[in-house]
Amino acid sequence: MISLEKQVAQASLKLKNLAQKSHLAHKHRQQPPARLKKQDIVLYVENLTVSFDGFKALNDLTFYLNSGELRCFIGPNGAGKSTMMDVLTGKTKVDSGSAWFVPDPGDPNPSHMLNLLEMDEVSIANAGIGRKFQKPSVFETLSVAQNLELALSMNRSVFKTYRSRLNGEQQDFMMATLEKIRLSSLANALAASLSHGQKQWLEIGMLLMQKPSLIMLDEPVAGMTPEEIEMTIALLHELKGQHTIMVVEHDMDFIRAIANQVVVLNQGTVLAEGNMDSIQSDPRVIKAYLGEGL
């Protein structure tokens, strides 16, 4: 296991160097990136810059995400973690940079890659990127099962929804998801009646119903009790490998429990990258976090 982690770490370091070398050439590239050495990259984020009224929320952010990996992003407040997710899900427009997504990791054809910066929220969601927001947002006046049903991946045409009914297979899938998010017994309860932690799970469940290949979780354990955090960790371990997962979180113990690869963001750019131990002993990281109790 450890050697595998090392390999991954080395590979991504190599990629980073490679990206830095080709930085200038790729500044305004509209073409999908030529395949880099690693074959299973699903997300290419290069030189993203976003500024709000002169303040650079993202500053030349570059990273690559491998298929099936779970990558954590940490960083002090204002480091650009949520902005990064906003950009990648079509909510915020960038000043410069590029973000390419491979919808099907098994398909090596670069022309099937998607330019996320040219897509809106809806097409990005339909391309297989699911996002859980910082604040749990579920449909409060619908039941748990109905929330999941709406998220179920299927034809999104508005006319089709008028006649749509769940078939047996979809019901089974929903049951399995309910099981996974530990809400089987509350399937017919109103989402509004759930606890904070349960709402977070329901939102993760909705993500799973979308069958996304890339999942973005923005502070998934914020406001959870220690028991709920334990269960979320178990859930994430279950999902690891089936989906590519990006997690933004402040809770260090939680990150230590789930992540093999951690990226530290600071002032909109990557400050350090590596496993948890090397990150925590990195003097630059300590400096950035000074007083925040890392």
Binding site: V122, G130, F133, L142, R156, V158, Q210
Partner: peptide, 24 residues
Amino acid sequence: SKLGRLCIAVRDAENRVRFIGYRV
């Protein structure tokens, strides 16, 4: 219908509906 539930979803959290892939 599911369309009706989508309406309620739009009423409750319009942006969330976009992020699960529907054209609000």
